[in-house]
Simulated scan of single mutants.
Amino acid sequence: MRDGAEEEYVEYVTARVPVLRRLAYVLTGDGHRADDLVQQTITTLYLKWPKARVADNIDAYVRTMLVRGYVDEKRLAWSKVRLFRQLPEPEPVEEVAAILGCSGGTVKSHTSRGLAALRRLLPPRIEVPR
């Protein structure tokens, strides 16, 4: 970039990152994903800065870039993948049903009734504000 455009870009991004991060967090619901989305947006903005800096409403232009980046990400198959620290355990109902000599549905219904009875005996949960 030339003619002070890079300084304008840095000044704009420095001022707008907190607002962009809040918008990204509202969209993603996750701080890490929001940071990634903002990083992607400001990188794309750097490449398009000559066009963006002369836009009538640069804030709307950049917000549109961020939202479109989010929508594009949601369309990708990998965005549906959830990573876990360890593999989730398979449901043991069928194993229990085989041991007890009954159906999986019977095990589920008895388990549900048993948990409901325990909940009635326990004091109500107290929610701790975060």
Rank of each mutant, 00 (worst) to 15 (best):
His110Gln: 11
Val81Pro: 01
Asp59Trp: 02
Tyr46Arg: 08
Val54Phe: 06
His110Asn: 10
Asp72Gly: 11
Leu45Gln: 03
Glu89Asn: 06
Lys80Ser: 15
Gln39Ile: 12
Asp35Gln: 10
Trp78Tyr: 14
Thr106Lys: 05
Asn57Lys: 05
Arg63Phe: 11
Val96Met: 12
Lys74Ala: 11
Ala55Met: 02
Leu76Phe: 04
Ala77Gly: 09
Ala77Leu: 14
Ala97Leu: 05
Arg68Trp: 06
Glu94Trp: 06
Lys48Phe: 09
Val54Pro: 01
Pro88Thr: 02
Arg75Met: 12
Phe84Ala: 09
Pro50Glu: 01
Ala77His: 12
Val96Thr: 11
Met65Asp: 01
Glu95Gln: 13
Ala34His: 05
Gln86Leu: 12
Met65Cys: 03
Thr41Gly: 03
Pro92Ala: 05
Asp35Val: 08
Val107Asn: 00
Thr106His: 03
Ala52Glu: 00
Leu76Gln: 14
Thr111Ser: 15
Asn57Arg: 10
Thr111Ile: 13
Trp78His: 14
Val71His: 08
Asn57Ser: 08
Glu73Ala: 15
Asn57Pro: 04
Lys80Trp: 13
Val62Arg: 00
Thr43Trp: 07
Gln39Phe: 08
Pro88Arg: 02
Tyr46Phe: 15
Arg85Tyr: 12
Leu83Ala: 14
Glu94Leu: 11
Gln86Gly: 08
Val81His: 09
Gln40Asp: 15
Gln39Cys: 06
Val67Arg: 04
Cys102Ile: 15
Asp36Cys: 07
Pro50Thr: 02
Ile58Leu: 15
Ala77Pro: 08
Thr44Lys: 15
Ser79Cys: 10
Val67Gln: 07
Ala98Pro: 00
Met65Thr: 03
Thr111His: 10
Cys102Ser: 11
Val67Asp: 00
Trp78Glu: 15
Ser109Met: 07
Arg75Tyr: 06
Gly69Leu: 05
Phe84Ser: 04
Gly105Cys: 04
Lys51Gly: 07
Thr106Phe: 01
Glu91Asn: 12
Thr106Pro: 00
Val93Phe: 12
Lys108Phe: 02
Ala34Val: 08
Tyr70Ser: 02
Cys102Ala: 11
Glu94Asp: 14
Val93Asp: 09
Ser109Pro: 00
Thr41Gln: 01
Gly114Glu: 07
Leu83Pro: 06
Cys102Phe: 10
Ser79Asn: 14
Gly101Tyr: 00
Leu76Cys: 09
Arg68Thr: 13
Cys102Pro: 02
Glu91Ser: 13
Arg85Met: 11
Asp56Tyr: 03
Thr41Asn: 03
Ala34Leu: 06
Thr111Lys: 13
Thr43Lys: 05
Gly101Gln: 01
Tyr61Val: 02
Lys74Pro: 01
Val81Leu: 07
Val93Trp: 08
Leu66Phe: 00
Gln40Pro: 04
Asp35Cys: 07
Thr64Asp: 08
Ile42Thr: 15
Arg85Phe: 10
Lys74Val: 12
Arg53Asp: 04
Ala77Met: 10
Thr44Ser: 13
His110Ala: 14
Val38Glu: 02
Arg82Gly: 05
Asp56Thr: 14
Met65Phe: 01
Tyr46Gln: 07
Gly105Ser: 09
Pro88Tyr: 02
Arg75Gly: 13
Ala60Arg: 07
Ala98Ser: 09
Val107Trp: 02
Gly105Phe: 03
Glu91Arg: 08
Pro90Met: 11
Leu45Arg: 05
Pro50Val: 03
Thr44Ala: 15
